[in-house]
Deep mutational scan, measured.
Amino acid sequence: KTVKFDGLQFDFDNPEKALKFALEVAKQKGAEVHIHGDEIKIE
């Protein structure tokens, strides 16, 4: 899975870790997590 935000991109082999990371970043930024297939966007 790939996590994208602020023009940055982070690749994870483990989908659970990717989602956990995305949710943590979103919480800190006050943003929402959007999942599109293998891509997780924080907006």
Results as ranks from 00 to 15, higher is better:
K1W: 15
K1Q: 09
K1P: 09
K1F: 15
K1R: 12
K1H: 11
K1A: 13
K1G: 06
K1D: 02
K1L: 13
K1M: 15
K1I: 15
K1C: 15
T2F: 08
T2I: 12
T2E: 02
T2W: 09
T2N: 04
T2H: 06
T2V: 12
T2Q: 06
T2S: 08
T2A: 05
V3T: 03
V3M: 04
V3W: 04
V3Y: 05
V3G: 02
V3H: 03
V3C: 06
V3S: 01
V3F: 06
V3N: 01
K4T: 13
K4L: 13
K4Q: 06
K4R: 11
K4F: 14
K4D: 02
F5S: 00
F5I: 07
F5E: 01
F5A: 02
F5L: 05
F5V: 08
F5C: 15
F5M: 05
F5W: 08
F5Q: 03
F5P: 01
D6A: 10
D6H: 09
D6Q: 09
D6F: 11
D6M: 13
D6W: 13
D6E: 09
D6V: 04
D6R: 11
D6P: 02
D6I: 05
D6T: 04
G7K: 05
G7Q: 04
G7S: 06
G7A: 05
G7V: 04
G7F: 06
G7I: 06
G7Y: 05
G7N: 07
G7C: 14
G7W: 06
L8N: 05
L8Q: 09
L8C: 15
L8W: 09
L8G: 02
L8M: 12
L8I: 07
L8R: 10
L8H: 06
L8P: 00
L8S: 05
Q9M: 09
Q9W: 08
Q9I: 13
Q9A: 10
Q9Y: 07
Q9L: 09
Q9F: 08
Q9T: 13
Q9E: 10
Q9D: 04
Q9V: 13
Q9P: 03
Q9R: 12
F10L: 05
F10D: 01
F10M: 04
F10H: 00
F10C: 14
F10N: 00
F10V: 05
F10S: 00
F10G: 03
D11N: 12
D11K: 13
D11M: 13
D11A: 12
D11F: 15
D11I: 14
F12D: 02
F12I: 03
F12T: 02
F12M: 03
F12S: 02
D13G: 04
D13A: 08
D13L: 08
D13S: 08
D13P: 06
N14G: 05
N14H: 06
N14R: 05
N14V: 05
N14D: 14
N14F: 04
N14E: 09
N14P: 00
N14T: 13
P15A: 13
P15G: 10
P15Q: 09
P15L: 14
P15V: 12
E16P: 00
E16K: 07
E16C: 15
E16H: 09
E16F: 11
E16A: 10
E16R: 09
K17V: 12
K17E: 15
K17Y: 11
K17A: 14
K17C: 15
A18G: 00
A18L: 03
A18Y: 05
A18D: 00
A18P: 00
A18K: 01
A18E: 01
A18M: 03
A18V: 00
A18N: 00
A18S: 01
A18I: 01
A18C: 12
A18F: 04
L19T: 01
L19H: 01
L19R: 05
L19Y: 11
L19Q: 02
L19S: 00
L19W: 12
L19V: 00
K20G: 04
K20T: 08
K20W: 10
K20H: 07
K20R: 11
K20A: 13
K20C: 15
K20Q: 12
K20N: 07
K20E: 12
F21D: 04
F21Y: 08
F21C: 13
F21M: 03
F21I: 04
F21K: 00
F21W: 11
F21T: 03
F21A: 04
F21V: 04
F21Q: 03
F21P: 02
A22H: 02
A22R: 00
A22M: 04
A22T: 01
A22C: 13
A22Y: 00
A22W: 06
A22S: 01
A22G: 01
L23A: 07
L23V: 06
L23K: 07
L23T: 06
L23M: 12
L23W: 10
L23D: 04
L23Y: 12
E24K: 09
E24N: 05
E24C: 15
E24V: 06
E24A: 12
E24L: 10
E24G: 05
E24M: 12
V25K: 00
V25P: 01
V25G: 00
V25I: 13
V25M: 12
V25L: 13
V25F: 11
V25A: 06
V25W: 11
V25S: 01
V25Y: 10
A26Q: 01
A26Y: 05
A26M: 04
A26D: 02
A26S: 03
A26C: 14
A26V: 01
A26K: 01
A26P: 00
A26G: 01
A26F: 04
K27Y: 10
K27Q: 10
K27S: 09
K27R: 12
K27C: 15
K27A: 13
K27T: 08
K27L: 11
K27I: 10
K27W: 09
Q28L: 13
Q28E: 10
Q28Y: 11
Q28H: 09
Q28R: 12
Q28P: 01
Q28M: 13
Q28N: 08
Q28V: 09
Q28K: 11
Q28I: 12
K29E: 07
K29Q: 10
K29C: 15
K29A: 11
K29R: 13
K29S: 11
K29L: 14
K29Y: 14
K29P: 03
K29I: 14
G30A: 06
G30M: 06
G30S: 05
G30F: 06
G30D: 06
G30E: 05
G30I: 04
G30Y: 06
G30K: 06
A31Y: 14
A31P: 01
A31N: 03
A31D: 04
A31R: 09
A31W: 15
A31H: 08
A31F: 12
A31T: 07
A31G: 12
A31C: 15
E32T: 14
E32P: 05
E32C: 15
E32F: 14
E32G: 09
E32A: 13
E32Y: 14
E32L: 13
E32M: 14
V33K: 02
V33S: 02
V33N: 02
V33Q: 00
V33R: 00
V33W: 08
V33A: 04
V33F: 07
V33P: 02
H34E: 06
H34D: 04
H34C: 15
H34Y: 13
H34F: 13
H34T: 11
H34W: 13
H34G: 05
H34R: 11
I35P: 02
I35G: 02
I35W: 09
I35Y: 07
I35S: 04
I35A: 04
I35K: 04
I35T: 04
I35F: 10
I35M: 09
H36M: 12
H36Y: 14
H36E: 12
H36S: 11
H36T: 10
H36Q: 11
H36K: 09
H36N: 11
H36I: 12
G37E: 07
G37H: 06
G37F: 09
G37R: 06
G37Q: 08
G37A: 07
G37N: 07
G37W: 08
G37I: 07
G37V: 06
G37T: 05
D38A: 08
D38E: 07
D38L: 09
D38H: 10
D38T: 11
D38R: 09
D38Y: 10
D38K: 09
D38P: 06
D38Q: 09
D38F: 10
D38S: 10
E39M: 11
E39Q: 08
E39H: 08
E39V: 14
E39I: 14
E39G: 03
E39N: 05
E39Y: 12
E39R: 04
E39P: 02
E39F: 11
E39C: 15
I40Q: 01
I40P: 00
I40H: 03
I40M: 04
I40D: 02
I40L: 07
I40C: 10
I40A: 03
I40G: 03
K41R: 14
K41L: 15
K41F: 15
K41E: 09
K41T: 14
K41N: 11
K41S: 13
K41D: 06
K41I: 15
I42D: 03
I42Y: 02
I42F: 05
I42G: 03
I42L: 07
I42A: 02
I42T: 01
I42R: 02
I42V: 09
E43C: 15
E43T: 12
E43G: 12
E43W: 13
E43L: 13
E43S: 11
E43P: 05
